Simulated scan of single mutants.
Amino acid sequence: MTSRPWQADAWARLQARRERDALPHALLLAGPAGLGKRDFLADFVKGLLCQQPTDGMPCGTCRSCMLMAAGTHPDVVALSFGLRKDGGTRTEIVVDQVRDLSQRLAMSSQFGGWQVATIDPADAMNAAAANALLKTLEEPTPSTILVLVADEPARLPATIRSRCQRIDFLVPSRDVALDWLRGQGVADAPAALEAAGGNPGLARDWAADGALKQRMEVRQDLKGLAAGRGDPMDVVKRWQATDPARYVWFAAQAATDELRARAAGRPAPLESQLDDESLDAWYGRANRARDALRGPLRTDLILLELIAAWR
């Protein structure tokens, strides 16, 4: 069904439930970004609504498939970030959006089959929106399936998670990931996979967009700062200009590698002046900085504080 082998078991289980007419009224697709949750969802929805599917996969030629391809299928509702009154994109899913969705799902299917609603990213719902969704989850409409997608499912209230059939997307083994990456044409698959923390989807994307060069740049920056070279503000400007969260991810990785080298008695690649306890604390600080970058705080101040702690 998919070119991602780590999804095969989840797909087979879901299709077996479909064959038994035992699909849950709510699904939660959970796991790190990069593992193909959204492609999995797209294939599942197309196959569910297809008029002549094969092993759950859409035919691509029926009326339903044509409407799906055009993005105009009347029985599919997709909920994501809406627009604010000033025209800007929201950073969370709000209660009015969920209420509108619930009203929409109270109506009958126009094709007489399934209605499908998706919420992505579900972990971006604020508290009021999540509470509003509970009623829909507790009183599902017949022949309606609600699919939530979350990169960080722990951010969802337990009351939401407990009412969904959860499908976890896990990082596959290194051998499986490397085989898939090589099949995707990734030249330096081992280096890309290491940079992505074992996540093959991220590794493929990062190998194509210069992330490996950024990873090396981060390590050079940290090593220079540890030796008293370089201007912290220059580092902040460079990290901020492209993808600050990814730069901080690579910085946290570098701190981990520094600790591992010390523990193994090897030369530490960054030559950090921090002792082991302080270095471990800095690793935690880097991860908190990644979380903070999603919020309203100024990016340059978050990065400057992190880099100042390194020096």
Rank of each mutant, 00 (worst) to 15 (best):
V116H: 09
A150F: 00
T136G: 02
V186Y: 08
P157L: 07
L146H: 01
V147F: 01
L146T: 14
A195P: 08
I145H: 01
T159M: 06
Q115P: 06
L137A: 08
L133I: 08
A191M: 12
A191K: 12
M125Q: 03
A117Q: 00
G112A: 01
R182L: 11
L134Y: 02
F111E: 15
A122N: 06
S173F: 10
D168K: 11
A124M: 12
S173E: 14
L170D: 13
A130Q: 08
I160P: 04
N126G: 09
D151P: 08
N131L: 13
D188Q: 13
A195N: 06
S162C: 06
S143R: 15
R182C: 12
A177I: 12
V171G: 11
R174D: 14
P142I: 10
A195E: 02
E152F: 12
P121V: 09
D188T: 02
A192T: 00
T118S: 12
T159N: 13
L170F: 12
V171Y: 11
R166N: 10
R182G: 12
P190D: 08
L137T: 08
P121L: 12
S173G: 15
P140T: 05
G185E: 07
V176P: 07
L156V: 00
R174F: 08
D188A: 15
C164A: 10
P140W: 01
G113Q: 01
T141G: 09
D120A: 15
G112T: 08
I160L: 14
R174M: 10
A150R: 03
L181Y: 05
A122R: 09
V171Q: 13
D168P: 10
D179Y: 07
V176L: 14
A132M: 04
P140E: 00
V171R: 14
C164S: 06
L137R: 05
D188Y: 07
T136Y: 00
I119G: 01
R163S: 02
L193K: 05
L134W: 01
S173Q: 13
C164N: 00
P157Q: 11
R163Q: 05
G112E: 00
D188P: 01
W114K: 04
S143Q: 15
M125K: 02
L193T: 03
E138T: 04
V116R: 03
A129T: 05
P190S: 06
T159E: 09
L193Y: 02
Q184T: 11
R182Y: 11
A130M: 07
S173I: 11
R161C: 04
V147I: 15
A127M: 13
V171S: 11
S162D: 00
T144S: 05
A122W: 08
E138M: 04
L170G: 09
D175Q: 15
A195K: 10
E139T: 00
L156D: 06
A129F: 03
A132N: 03
